[in-house]
Design a protein around this nucleic acid. Structure first.
Lengths: 196, 196, 196, 196
DNA sequence: CATGAATGAGTATTCATTCAT
DNA sequence: GATGAATGAATACTCATTCAT
């Protein structure tokens, strides 16, 4: 039962983001992470169950923050349109501001054996829930058609954002990710709102 | 240089789809594929450069067909709306009809080291090109706003479809994938067409 | 240099017998012994030099008692035959009464690297000495042939007893070990005494 | 399912005896055995399941021979006394002639986790069976008391021989093991035969 | 073309032991 | 004396790939 707190926990996580983003998950040795974090190899295993657990924890840890912050922002905003805009902007801002993090989330995380990586589904689901709530609030507001399949809409919205970020990560992040917020907003707004 | 055709080539590819879909890419040993295909271990390397090449070839091979067929269908259809509908339906039909194939494409393919998997970008790009042409034809037709960023729209469209298929694959394929064609079409039509 | 006495010393030794007998020497972690003993990992090393030292001490500690008690019993007995009987009975009684102890002595102790385990030879030698004295007293008494190689006889006697106990330990201790004292005595008596 | 035959199988086994006898089981690395055998590390695992399997196979392989040869010798001999003498001599001869082998059998083999080493019990049992048959033939012949517990006698006989060999191995094999055959025979004959 | 025995590079993980508190 | 977080050495085993036949 690893210790999920403490200074060393953070050090290791930080070192891991750096190494994973730089060399990829499979090419990164645990010993390398330890060195970068300034701890002994064995110390890693006081805080994580396995190399894979580091990657999953990386995601879980950040995803918790991500959703919490998003919820806060949504609480300060009124109406479906603003909520949608907030959601999109938040997604792009956060990932755009942390390229290494984004790299790991978009690329490396998907290299884990899906038979094992149930670990990421929890935090991800809570994000999905928030997205669905936003869409549903649009329905309540009368802006979004009641007959819209909310789950389907969520998948499409998330998939669209996700692909945009992935492409950005893979093209060496040449442009400002957040600059895409407006055009994306307009497309998604059209997609979901009835008579614009 | 490997022989990229012949009876054994097909046998190996078929064995690989089966094994990858069943056990995942990393958990599948080359020896296992050879056994399933009824050939010797070494024979694999007469037809493929590496284990990874099998996975990539799997994708390339099918993606070629996929795009060819799609182009044929699009040639027989008039107007952006029908083209879009054809695109979506084709995507869902083909993947929905080949669950094992879909499993490999959606899940296993993403486990390859991105530093190496440039192999898939070729065939994928030709699909992207078709998608962009469809959107552009919508602009020419006056249905889609000229100011729409076609590449961005393509990413979102593809991302949306891709996520829908991934979710379907991961939920044990309980429903008919193609049954989602209509609702998806309506959302994407709204997304891209001006005043509906 | 470790403190070879005190309450904690006993606690650790007791915990070790339990764990070794239950899981075997190699499968037992020092941390586990510490936990079972209710002390910190590091505390172990205030009382023992190494994991191996625990096992060796276990043996030494008990072997000291074993030989002392045996000597006392022998002092109260007259004649080779009674001495031999006493020796056999003592061996079977003590080990039969402490199955966990016997398990460790007969099985686990032999898993130690013989390049290091000189530690056990001391206490064992004093037992061997007692056995040899008993045999020699038989010679003095005229019951045992003078030409008998006492060291050889000792090895055979000890080996015979040892194997009997090992078999008992490995067959889940289904019968009373001490019940074998009589038949064993008769065989060994015949073995060593001239014309019975 | 490892290949239990072939030239390489023998090479590896020979290399293993040498290394185990020289450095002990735990101190011997698999890579070292491979080097000594002139094969690649991985090749070991084509012929053996694990490092432990090498040690067990070592014993099994030789024990088969040992028992077969013993049976042949016994077939050419008449009467309990000669059979017993044959048994003892064979035991001492074979082990005395192969000190490295004896080292491994008497010392290293016992370092294997008894929870796993069921592998050795088979071949050993067939030896036990032969010993018991010899004793039983003595009973049939009228030389050994019918009331003697044959299994107990076997354990004592085997334990006695075993301990003698172990002592010999551990004292740097300074004397000829087989020279002990006569005195041992006399002791065991007295032990089991009624009126000498 | 086909074979499959042989190769050997590559590394996550364990756990006895230490030492600063 | 006691603690327990931190250490880091140590290595069996896998499996994609090759090549002699």
């Amino acid at each position: 039962m690893p210790i999920k707190k403490g200074e060393k926990y953070i050090q290791i996580l930080d070192a891991a983001v750096k190494e994973f983003a730089e060399n990829g998950y499979h090419r990164t040795q645990v010993a390398r992470i330890a060195k970068e974090a300034g701890v002994a190899d064995g110390t890693i295993y006081l805080y994580f169950e396995s190399k894979e657990d580091i990657l999953v924890s990386l995601f879980t840890e950040k995803m918790g923050d991500f959703v919490d912050k998003l919820k806060q922002k949504l609480a300060n905003v009124n109406g479906f349109r603003e909520e949608l805009r907030t959601l999109i902007t938040h997604h792009l801002e956060v990932l755009g501001a942390n390229p290494a993090q984004a790299m790991v989330t978009q690329i490396e995380l998907r290299q884990i054996d899906p038979w094992i990586n149930q670990g990421i589904s929890g935090p991800l689901k809570s994000y999905f829930k928030v997205i669905e709530e936003v869409i549903r609030s649009g329905q309540d507001e009368g802006l979004v058609c009641k007959s819209l399949d909310v789950r389907l809409a969520r998948k499409m919205l998330f998939g669209a954002l996700d692909e945009v970020v992935t492409c950005w990560v893979m093209t060496d992040k040449k442009y400002e990710l957040v600059s895409l917020a407006d055009p994306i907003f307009e497309i998604l707004e059209s997609a979901f709102c009835k008579n614009k």
